[in-house]
Amino acid sequence: MNINAFLLGLLVMSVVTYLVRAVPFGLMQKKITNRFFCSVLYYIPYTVLSAMTFPAILTSTSSLHASVCGMLVALLLAYKGKGLVRVAFSAALATLAMHVILTCIHEFL
């Protein structure tokens, strides 16, 4: 790819992303007291993360079975209150293990 095109694209991406974060953060000086808005702000991180995760997690690897395996491990460990890194890492390992098992079954049977 052309270096100039890359640098121009990089500039556009980073400026837009920066403004999306900094403008509301820099301009919002007052405390919101409205109960409705407070409620929306209370729920929004969880709804956004949920919508980003499901159903995209099912297609996050090339095998549906392996993805489901990783997802179940993540849900179980998160339910047990394990930390961010442990959950993410275990999900990745479970997915990898399932993938290896499936590949072996496919190869040798």
């Binding site: 949920s50 095998s63 993540a74 961010l84 959950v87 997915t95 290896v100």
Partner: peptide, 27 residues
């Protein structure tokens, strides 16, 4: 093959943020 596990790590992190809160607050 290692890549196969990587793609899910980010989602695992999101699950680890949402699930404990959902367990605590049924709303």
């Amino acid at each position: 093959v290692v890549l196969q596990g990587m793609g899910i790590a980010l989602y695992g992190m999101f699950i680890a943020i949402v699930v404990p809160k959902a367990k605590e607050d049924h709303h």
